[in-house]
Simulated assay, not measured.
Amino acid sequence: MSNARNALAAVGEILGELGLELHPDKTKVVDLREGREGLDFLGCHFRARFSGKVWEKYRKVRFYLHRWPSQAAMKRLRDKVRERTDRRRSGWDIREVIAELNPILRGWGAYFRTGNAARKFTQVDDYVVWRLRRLMVKKRRLRGTIRYPKAA
């Protein structure tokens, strides 16, 4: 850990000479050994995880660095999906809503497809299906109500 702190101080000095500085809230030294801590960087959460397969096969303890979407990245995606599947869109054709969601989901999926994000992809898929199902139920309830023609 002392080597990491020395390196951080050296980087701080070099950046200082260039007129830049490290943000104190965003810069920290993290102990990734044996999955003790994790860190968020560019929308990803990094953490060392125990490999059960190596243990089962060779009886050796091995940790590998895994990467998946951070909680903040998941929240931002849920907010975007929520915004586009809002109750006010229950009058829209569901195909239009899906067409608006597809580029967002494709982009998010392309960014996070490498790494260990299978559980997070399942969570996103379940959330999108749930939101679309709610929108469809709301649309069918509206269909049975009396609508008055707009005044000209």
Rank of each mutant, 00 (worst) to 15 (best):
A48Q: 11
K26L: 12
S51M: 06
L101V: 10
E100L: 01
R95S: 11
L105N: 12
A151M: 14
S90K: 14
D86V: 14
D126S: 13
A118D: 12
P69I: 06
W108C: 08
R106I: 12
T145N: 05
G19W: 05
D93G: 11
R59G: 11
L8T: 01
L22F: 02
W130G: 15
V137F: 07
R147L: 14
R87Y: 14
S90M: 15
Q71N: 02
K120E: 15
G91Y: 05
W92C: 14
A110Y: 10
L18M: 04
H23C: 10
T85G: 13
V11R: 09
V29E: 10
G43P: 09
N3P: 13
K150L: 15
T114C: 13
G144Y: 06
F121A: 14
F46W: 02
H23A: 15
Y58C: 07
L22H: 00
M1K: 12
R84E: 14
E17G: 12
F63M: 01
R87Q: 15
W92Q: 13
T122D: 09
D86I: 10
D125W: 06
M1D: 08
Q71D: 01
R133T: 11
D125K: 14
A151H: 08
W108E: 14
D25L: 13
T145K: 15
R87D: 15
K53C: 05
L105C: 07
R106C: 03
K53M: 07
R106H: 09
G19I: 02
W92A: 13
K120W: 03
W108M: 04
L77G: 01
M74L: 13
R106G: 02
G43W: 00
V129S: 12
R33P: 05
G115F: 03
R143W: 06
K120V: 11
L8V: 03
A99W: 03
P69K: 02
M74E: 14
